[in-house]
Amino acid sequence: MSIKLPGRNTLPTVSAKPLPARRDRLLPVAYAGGMLAIGAALLVAKPKFGHVPQPNRMGDGPRLSRWRRAAQRGRDGVQTFAPANVTDSIGRSLMLGGVALLLARALDEIAGRDGQ
């Protein structure tokens, strides 16, 4: 009598059952709701760890060198686009993504199934 043990080259079989139709349809809505909730929480909470210090640490006085004056003007120009709190940017992105996912799911439901 011999016992057959699985070898190294055998993989376990996984049944590929499709997800139930109801769960498949509601899962994107749950993801979108989570994205909206986390994004709103980040915007409201404004955690301290996301605060970015101002880039003008060396002062705003005039510089003698041309290159330093150009760097100072460039720094001031770019500063307008830099976020003051990184978590605000992440929160806004999560909320936009959540709204887009909800909108795509709603339009998918309006479009209906194939052949109908």
Results as ranks from 00 to 15, higher is better:
Asp76Val: 09
Ile3Leu: 12
Lys17Gly: 08
Ala30Glu: 11
Ala40Pro: 00
Gln79Tyr: 10
Ile3Phe: 13
Ser2Tyr: 06
Pro53Gly: 05
Gln72Phe: 09
Gly115Cys: 00
Arg25Ser: 03
Gly39Met: 00
Ala106Ile: 06
Thr10Ile: 09
Leu19Ala: 13
Phe81Trp: 11
Lys48Thr: 03
Gly74Pro: 07
Pro62Tyr: 07
Ala37Tyr: 06
Arg22Asp: 11
Arg73Thr: 12
Ser93His: 02
Asp108Thr: 15
Leu101Gln: 04
Ala100Gln: 00
Pro18Cys: 02
Arg22Gly: 10
Val52Ile: 13
Phe49Ile: 14
Leu11Tyr: 13
Leu64Trp: 13
Leu103Cys: 11
Arg69Ser: 11
Ala45Val: 13
Arg22Trp: 12
Asp114Pro: 05
Phe81Asn: 04
Asp60Gly: 12
Asn56Ser: 09
Ile90Val: 14
Gln54Gly: 03
Lys17Asn: 11
Met35Asn: 03
Leu42Ile: 00
Pro47Val: 06
Asp24Ala: 14
Ser2Gln: 10
Tyr31Pro: 05
Thr13Cys: 14
Ala45Ser: 14
Gly7Gln: 04
Ile38Val: 15
Met35Ala: 11
Ala32Trp: 10
Met58Val: 12
Arg22Ile: 13
Gly74Leu: 15
Met1Asn: 09
Gly91Pro: 00
Pro83Ile: 03
Pro12Val: 15
Ala45Met: 10
Leu102Ala: 06
Leu64Val: 14
Val29Asp: 02
Ala104Asn: 06
Leu102Gly: 04
Val14Asp: 03
Leu102Arg: 03
Ala70Asn: 07
Arg57Ala: 13
Leu43Thr: 02
Ser65Leu: 11
Pro47Ser: 06
Ala71Asn: 02
Pro18Leu: 11
Gly34Pro: 05
Ala32Pro: 09
Gly98Met: 04
Pro6Tyr: 07
Gln116Asp: 15
Ala16Asp: 14
Ile38Met: 13
Ala100Tyr: 00
Ala104Trp: 05
Leu107Trp: 08
